[in-house]
Design a protein around this nucleic acid. Structure first.
Lengths: 337, 337
DNA sequence: AATTTCTACGCAAACGTTTGCAACATTTGC
DNA sequence: GCAAATGTTGCAAACGTTTGCGTAGAAATT
């Protein structure tokens, strides 16, 4: 039955020595006799002594905890990132505490407050789609709490960033579609709020230009959800010069795209190719299976956490802001020629 | 630039009063004059005073943090659960710290150690697939840390549990398949290690029996991953009396099932029906879209967290062990007749 | 005028650690 | 035989709070 955790004082009393001796014995400091050390260690082990992290934290004003602000946990990419962060943190003996912004700026602001008052050692954050003001992140910096942005970064704040190579991922995928003979590639993108969306659009456009193909804004609608796809894709298919390929900003839209195309009697990929972005669990479930850009969320999470912990450990090295880029990889499956 | 967080002492010194007066003023205790309170509040607000949670925790030996042990974050169901827990915890002003067992008993054991030494107020846990010993959870209980199991529960430990109604979910789905005219329903299940898998199997069997149909072990293989499906499903389809329906233990297997069936030239659902379990993002991506049992992860997470926090707040009410059951719901789409 | 009652505040202990310094005993060196 | 060096331990302060108790001065009661 739950006897309250044993403390140094308890050990000291039991062995009739002072608290400081116990403390030093357990830390194996040289000034304590071997005899005493053995006694203390034995007693501590038998009674499952665990140092009280709160007391430790109070002295050092830190608690080996890292805060994470993430837009949405239920999301293949973000959960992969989270998983990578968790593993890396555990390896380095840090705990993580997680806040979810749910794509809402207010909750994001609240999250920074929560994490600061929880006295985390550092914060990893990805912007919500609706965030247009960044004072709360500046406050984190002013508070001397190291901050690393991942994926959805904020260019206005002077701090470390880790991003997926959206531009090249998009460029390469587009170029691949062109190489398989696609002449008219539609781009299903997101709104202009997030930099990642713009980067993908630019990669797509530049690939077209490089190959002397026109950039046609009329086949570049905003379409980043399944319900939007159900409106937008049929309309595109009914045009006289319909696209012969769709490049979608995420796998969900791409999968929806495939199904709509098939319902129009076209064949994927013979008539129309489809390419996604993420490489989530959906990519193998579609028929045909989905060619898509692997976003490497797990690596991104690992690297962002590594970077942050590096900052924490070597606080003196103020070597300016670091920007890391995770290379994407095109995964070719059956939805492209 | 980051001036270190302001403390009660700083306020006291600045206002030339004692620390205890400051403390009481901020807590709005009646024994402090209104005049002093106003002074203190003003100064505190101006300097963004935030109480040091570590110091608070040291006194009360608690830190408003709840630990979560989860098999795998990158998993639709579990990430939904996590999301529900996070929201509920935030609503009640608790932080969550997360450990991932990755389906590995050793890491699960380590996770309990981490959480206990982090002095969490309570723990929410779901068993890893490989866990066969439960001493580490008994230790949690012995440590007087409230513990709630969710989804993958441990019957050997006497504590609260929240589960999905696997039996009825499975029973209803099977009955639905029967009602659409299926005569020979294969069950693609998981190994016997987890109770949830057995419950689903029993629901399936009982539904068959109720409708006077034979329970045929030869069409109930262990098949809970896509790679297993690629071995098992073709073999079943080649038999002389092939199944006319597949009931899979998760959506991934079900989706793989659909694709394999189509590659054999059969039609879904006209020739063969398919039903999954989870209702994840895959369910709308398959063609035809997937009929599946909604596991309601978000609700489960919310309710498990509610239950735990209830325990924490009303520690005296020792009303025995609570078992909560989340009702599942069959989502009928196009993969069944 | 002497006693009691308020009012408003301060002192100090406690939570569990770590750590600089002092203190003591024992050995060493001359 | 005495000082110095060495080896082992304890004391006490500090981290930032909260809170029981004590107390100064003022007001109210005799």
């Amino acid at each position: 039955m739950g006897k309250k955790q044993i403390t140094l004082k308890d050990i000291a009393k039991a062995l009739d020595i002072s608290i400081s001796t116990v403390s030093r014995a357990l830390k194996d400091l040289p000034e304590i006799s071997e005899e005493t050390k053995i006694k203390v260690r034995k007693f501590a082990k038998e009674h499952k002594y665990k140092p009280n992290v709160l007391a430790l934290g109070l002295r050092t004003n830190t608690n080996n905890t890292i805060g994470i602000i993430i837009p949405e946990i239920v999301h293949y990419f973000f959960s992969s990132v989270l998983s990578g962060m968790q593993e890396e943190a555990e390896k380095e003996d840090y705990n993580i505490i997680i806040c979810q912004s749910n794509e809402d700026q207010l909750r994001e602001v609240k999250a920074t407050q929560i994490l600061l008052s929880a006295k985390v050692c550092g914060i990893l954050a990805s912007l919500s789609k609706t965030t247009t003001e960044f004072d709360h992140f500046q406050e984190v910096i002013d508070n001397d709490t190291p901050l690393v942005f991942f994926d959805r970064i904020c260019t206005g704040i002077n701090t470390d960033k880790v991003v997926v190579d959206d531009y090249n991922g998009s460029y390469n995928a587009t170029e691949y579609l062109i190489s398989t003979g696609c002449k008219r590639i539609a781009f299903l993108g997101a709104g202009p709020n997030l930099a990642i969306s713009n980067n993908r659009r630019m990669g797509y456009e530049d690939a077209l230009r490089k190959h002397g193909m026109p950039v046609d804004k009329t086949i570049m609608p905003i379409c980043d959800t399944i319900s939007l796809a159900k409106e937008v894709v049929p309309e595109l298919l009914l045009r006289t010069n319909r696209p012969d390929a769709f490049f979608a900003i995420n796998d969900e839209v791409a999968s929806s795209c495939i199904n709509i195309i098939k319902s129009f009697g076209y064949h994927v990929p013979q008539d129309i190719s489809v390419c996604g972005f993420t490489n989530g669990n959906i990519a193998e479930a579609t028929d045909p299976s989905l060619t898509t850009v692997d976003q490497r969320g797990h690596e991104l999470g690992t690297i962002a956490m590594e970077l942050l912990i590096g900052r924490l450990k070597g606080k003196e090295k103020k070597e300016g802001v670091v920007n890391k880029i995770i290379r994407t990889k095109l995964i070719v499956r059956e939805s492209t020629k």
